[in-house]
Nucleic acid binder design. Structure first.
Lengths: 359, 359
DNA sequence: ATGAAAGCGCTAACAG
DNA sequence: CTGTTAGCGCTTTCAT
């Protein structure tokens, strides 16, 4: 079953002359620790000690084992290793799906992980399409305890903390609590967005929100209302609608809003995806952005610069948030005392999807 | 040790009225299969059968076990499960680091995985910074056999195929071989890029390549030379330099190129990162793009639209490549007969980093 | 300095 | 229909 180094040539003789076959034969299947042990003439326990740099192995043995490891291309199985040792030096990033928001965080986490000695494992439950709430709980249960030493969870709705397992939530939907969190100033950002539209002369401003159960969505709506109130402009409740934060779900909402005879002159979308969706719908209805409709988004995902016209939006420093989350997680695992809530500022990014209303 | 469902209320009574506290107490630590078995009054084998939907369990037992599973929030450990069963319904995407190129692929793979029943696990070796070749071999050895049923490997240099384990390489550095691959037409894309510069009247055109050992890099350089030759323009070899495909590594090369008295009027960078780096260097040297220097890239990562001026580049359909790679992998695992090499077309994307030379 | 043996959480024969 | 048993690949006492 297991491959002796010694029978490589026998088997190769039976193969064809394709290089790939030779490679295949040299490593016909996964080589495990007992393969190494056998080839080196030692026990698996000794191999394990060598692999993990434990004391109590003769110099000569160490070298012989390492040589065999190198020759066979042995690498410890993450699954088996973690099952037994409960320490893997792998950190998890748990997402519902890999969309622009989470991949920006991922980039930031990836740069921050360099030099920490940890590796990164991003896991998508696949339940992206709004289906299946509780993905974060399932993913966490599946990976924690084994496989990963800690996790960053992206936009979780509910998080249970397990004893002895560290979790950092990015943009959690429940708002800061006992759980370590990283988010941006959603309220201030929404005020920024709304004030921008107001300063351009807009008064009939619509808002396409995320979902009422999401904290970030609630804060953005609250910021919108605050800015409107501060400007003394009444909010037309018929122009405030739930859009769900996704391209498809926001399209219907945008359609209803824009089909009105008294449609808004400007829309503050709860996130860039909703804003992009709104622009798509507007185009299909024969409206021109920004001439017939101004649109502002939230997030500043790279895609917002790629659409036509480029989207004016509120920047969240996503990569930085990912990096901060990872650093916070590493610190928590190391047992450092530090502030477990990080809130980063937002910023207005003016591109070309809003215009000033003529007097 | 193990959590009785029954003590939830007792503990909650001591807590505050925050829902999160109740949850914390309900699942103080990882619940495993024996916890479930004990709570349900059956053996772990029976629980396993219920979890995996095996035949031969009484209706009533199934329901009782499922109830306990639900109450305890049990989820099978991926590590343990895969160690034993060698089938996890998880597909891996192995990358050196999470940068714009690989995250675009990830987005595509993420959309393609929906509905397949698989989940996605993206693993970064962390050896991003050009260090440590062979990351793909190590990552693969670490995850294959356990944890994942197949893998998409992003820009691998060397890949060994293991028996019975399916791997798809995206943009492999060795060119199509026996291994299933997905890439884009690098040669044609490079011709497109070069012709664009030629059509704008440029003759002194520099090229910042990737690394000679990378197939995609070689093809782009070859396409550049072909287009120049076809146009009857001699290539000045002093203007063709290795840049390494990364921001930092390309900066030095760009600096040397632009410091020349007879510096090029246009640069075809081997990828967008090199192009962006070249624009940075040009700015630092007091040169204006595109007035003093035209720059064209390759890839069309979202970032290329965000820089100033927006980068003219060659689009590879990255998300589509990721999606195709994932579909190919799924098909291979299913044992389908199909073409194992997929090559997608490239396209010129004109933005604002190139200008026509005055006559 | 080395190895035998137990066990991490799970699945798969096999017995009952 | 259910439980007992063995073992996946690894780490870790504990003997030798």
């Amino acid at each position: 079953m297991s491959i002796g180094v010694d029978n490589v040539f026998d088997s190769a003789a039976e193969g064809r002359d394709l290089p790939s076959i030779i490679i295949n034969v040299a490593f016909p299947q996964r080589v495990n620790m007992s393969d190494v042990a056998r080839a080196a003439g030692v026990s698996v326990a000794t191999v394990s000690k060598v692999v993990n740099g434990r004391y109590g192995v003769a110099r000569a043995t160490i070298e012989r084992v390492q040589q065999v490891i190198h020759q066979l291309g042995y690498e410890a199985s993450l699954g088996a290793q973690s099952l037994r040792s409960h320490r893997t030096n792998v950190l998890g990033i748990l997402v519902a799906e890999f969309e622009p928001f989470s991949t920006e965080l991922l980039k930031g986490a990836s740069t921050a992980v360099a030099g920490t000695g940890y590796q990164l494992l991003a896991y998508s439950s696949g339940d992206g399409a709004g289906t299946a709430v509780g993905w974060e709980r399932r993913s966490l249960a599946r990976l924690s305890g084994t496989l990963i030493d800690g996790a960053v969870i992206v936009t979780p709705t509910v998080v249970e903390t397990k004893q002895g397992f560290h979790v950092v939530a990015v943009d959690p939907h429940t708002g800061p609590s006992g759980l370590p969190t990283v988010d941006s100033d959603n309220f201030a950002g929404a005020v920024l967005a709304t004030n921008h539209l107001l300063s351009l002369g807009h008064r009939r401003i619509g808002h396409i929100s995320g979902r009422p159960d999401l904290e970030s969505s609630r804060l953005r709506e609250a910021g919108f209302r605050q800015a409107m109130a501060d400007a003394g402009v009444a909010v037309d409740e018929r122009l405030v609608r739930v859009g769900g934060f996704r391209i498809e779900s926001a399209a219907g909402t945008a359609g209803e809003l824009l089909a009105r005879a008294d449609r808004p002159t400007a829309v503050f979308a709860g996130n860039d995806l909703s804003a992009i969706s709104t622009m798509n719908v507007a185009r299909e209805m024969g409206l021109t952005v920004p001439d017939d409709l101004s649109v502002i988004g939230f997030d500043n995902i790279p895609e917002s610069a790629l659409v036509n016209p480029p989207l004016t939006t509120i920047m969240q420093p996503l990569q930085q948030m990912g990096a901060e989350a990872l650093r916070l997680l590493v610190d928590l695992i190391a047992g450092a005392e530090r502030d477990i809530h990080i809130r980063l500022p937002t910023e207005l990014v003016i591109r070309a999807s809003c215009r000033a209303l003529p007097d």
